[in-house]
Structure formats: C-alpha cells, structure tokens
Write a protein that binds this DNA or RNA. Structure first.
Lengths: 223, 223
DNA sequence: GCGACGGTTCGGTCCCGGCCGAAGTGTCCC
DNA sequence: GGGACACTTCGGCCGGGACCGAACCGTCGC
C-alpha cells in the first residue's frame, strides 16, 4: 500500500528541472520563480508549473510579495530527505567543464545544507567539536557541549526540533552537524563574519578572520 | 550538477510497479521474478523489464538459478534509502479495505526492515535495550551492550558495517535499531523461535514462547 | 524424448507529462 | 495614467516510457 505514495513522492523528484530547483533551494534561502527558472535553464512558464506542483505537494512553501513569488524548502525534513537522496546518488563522475569543476570544488570545500554547514568545512567542524568533547562521536551534545552552545547564545528550549542531528554529507560521505545546534552554529559563524557565501549558490568559504578565529577556538585547520 | 543524478535515481522509484517491487523486497529476502510480478499486479514481461532496469541501476542484485531469476535488494544502503523515503511519504490515509487494513495493522505491529526488526516491535525492542542501559538514547552500544551482544554470539569484528544505526520507523516515526547489531538480534530471535514471519510478506509476530522470553529477558511487553 | 513452466524478447498501443510561445493579469515605478 | 516587469494561463507539440499479447528460449519433471 505505501508503494503508491513512495512512487508519488519519487515522481516529484524524478524530473531534471524540479531536481535542479530543489538542489538550488537546498541553500535554505527563498528564491523567486524567475531566478529558479534561470538556474534550471527553462522558460518561466515551465518553472511556474513546477513550483506549483512542488508547493501543492508540500515540499516547498511559497510567499507572495508584490509581483514576486518567493519559494523555499518547507522545512528541515525536506532538506534532510534531499540530502539522503543526494548522498546515495553520490557525486557521480567529475564535472565535465572547468567552470563546473571549480564550482563543484567550492561546494565540496564548504556549503550550506539548508541551514547548517556541510562539505569539508562542515565535517571538519563536527570533528573539531568531537575532539574537544563538546559532541560525542555520534554528534549528540555532551554536558560541556551544551554549555558551549549556551555561551554562543543558543537557546534550545521550547523547540520541537532535535538539538543535534547527524546529516550524511554527500561529498564527504561522513556525517556533519545538523539540527538546531548545527543551524545556530552556522548562523553564529555568519554573524561574526567568519564564514561567508562565495558566489551565487550554496558555496561557503572561511574568511581570513575566520581562519584565525577557528584555529584559535577549536584548533580547526579550515579547508 | 548533482541534480541530474538525483532525478535519475528518483525516476527509478517514481513508478508504482517498481515501487511495489522495492517495498516487497524490503523484507530482505530474494524473490523470483514471477512472485514479484504477481505482487505488483502486472504481467511477467512488464516485471521482467522493471527488474532489469533496477538491477542495472544497482539497486537490486540478481541470482539466476535454473529457470528462476532471484532478485534481492543490493544491500543495507538501498534498504535505508527506501526507509527514508517511506518515512517521509508516511503511512498516508488508512487502508480502504478490511483485508488491506488487517494486513497493514500486522505490518505496523511488527515487520522486518531489510534485515532487522521494525514496527511497534522494533521500536519496543530498542526502547527496552535503552532502558536496560545496553544502548544509549541515540542507539549506540554501551560497554554493557557490547558484552550483551557478545553473549548472544554476535561478532562485530571484521565488518565494515556500522555496529548500530538508528533507522527511522515509518509507521512509528521513531527510531529502531538497525546496523549489524540490529541484524544479529533479528536473526537470533528468529533462531530461537521467539518471532516468526506471519503471512506471506514482511509482517513478523512474537510467538507465545517469545512473549514469555522477552518479558523475562528485557521486561518487554510484546506488541 | 515430450509437455509444462518460468522467464525473456519483440512489436505495437497508448497516455502522461514536460516544454514553449503567445496572450493575459496584476504590481511597481515614474 | 502608462510602460516595464514578474508571473500565470492556455493551447499545442512532442517524446518517453509503461503496458500487454504473442512468440521464443531455456529448464525441469516424467
């Protein structure tokens, strides 16, 4: 019986254009319909129909503002679902063009995964937190870790969301930190100017300040 | 760039018949092509083509024996992938017919998930192991747990597979025990005759002996 | 040997769904 | 108010792929 629903869900992702849209939205930001049409390489009417379908299925949430239609992933569950599939589908063969190769190298170095950090940067952060006994090996908080996040201004009370979650990284094939703590850490590093989006997409790079600060704070050799 | 591979993978699952085949194979057993054709409700040629496609994609492995073509899930990764999707797609609306309702009730009570136990039974087992301090709250083994599994005859050395893994249960929406330990526990309970497949599919029920033994051993009130 | 059976190959049908261009609706800005 | 702009609706085209029946190939059992 659940086979029908499985097929229905998979059908939503089984189209190059919709897949491109979802992957773009994995950066956790809201995109306009036009931006997504350009990113996916299709005409506006085509993108419009796809977005309607994804919104109706509940994978995306939309927010209309003036003449713009903003759209974003519905929530962390949807991001996790996509990450699982991407982790299985794998990075595949290397990128064919130089331009694509440098872009995917930047993504492999560091990127956002919905609302937390992934790529070599994400994995290295998780490793550093484990090495400092702030997280256990399976990425749940230790008492010291809870205190540490508290010092960062995190408040995990009153949220139904798990504080920590291990998210399988689809380039590194190792888990990085997701959940409320992962999201807070990502936002905190951005606020400090220690990491910054590079380029238009999901790629994230450590700033010079960040490189020093992270080495100092966590003994992290930033990728 | 990974969008194309995501769409390709999803397309494999985006068909009712292939989805039905994969869900059937989630019991971890090898099925013949004919059995799967009947289970999915299609003619033999149709099933044959689907199986070829799934095998070529690497989701299934086949084993030809005489005039039979046996087919099974390629490995635990594939099972985990399907479970993730099913957990998201959810149990949906209740079953429309009485026959289907009793079948899905049996599945919800207990079933195999590839090679370990799931459903209320699987979740209850995991809870009992946590309560006895054999597993941590996130379903990794404690030292006592390792000793306990050792006493069960489990040998986790020399396997690349994780000893424990939390697998999100798509009926209970809570994690149950997967990984090498989950598989061993499932096999061990079967060997003892404490659980037994009921019906033709994945459903599993606790036997009378098992009910007594599990209450005795783990304080478990079997579902 | 010979029939029964499981599975596959082939050919043909049919339908779903992705795509775009043109035209329409509403919003913003001057 | 008028023109540029973001987006949507509509109509029509086209390709892919799911399905089956018929015929074919190998294996099993007598």
């Amino acid at each position: 019986m659940p086979a029908a629903e499985l097929a229905e869900l998979a059908a939503l992702l089984a189209d190059r254009t919709r897949a491109a849209v979802l992957v773009a939205l994995l950066d956790g930001r809201a995109w306009t319909a036009g931006e997504l049409a350009r990113a996916a390489g299709v005409a506006p009417p085509t993108a419009s129909a796809h977005l309607t379908r994804l919104v109706e299925a509940g994978l995306l949430r939309e927010h209309r503002q003036g003449r713009h239609r903003y759209v974003r992933l519905a929530g962390p569950e949807e991001a996790a679902l996509l990450e699982h599939l991407l982790a299985y589908a794998g990075p595949g063969r290397p990128a064919p063009t130089l331009r694509a190769a440098t872009a995917s190298a930047a993504l492999a170095r560091g990127r956002t995964c919905y609302d937390h950090l992934a790529g070599r940067l994400g994995v290295a952060l998780a490793d550093a937190l484990v090495a400092r006994d702030l997280l256990t090996a399976d990425l749940t908080t230790t008492p010291a870790g809870l205190a540490w996040f508290d010092a960062l201004g995190a408040d995990f009370t009153g949220t139904r969301r798990p504080v920590t979650r291990a998210c399988l990284d689809w380039t590194e094939r190792r888990p990085h930190l997701a959940g409320a703590a992962g999201a807070h850490l990502c936002a905190w590093l951005h606020d400090r100017g220690w990491v910054r989006r590079s380029g238009t997409g999901r790629a994230v790079a450590v700033t010079d300040d960040g490189r020093v600060a992270l080495a100092d704070l966590l003994g992290l050799v930033a990728p």
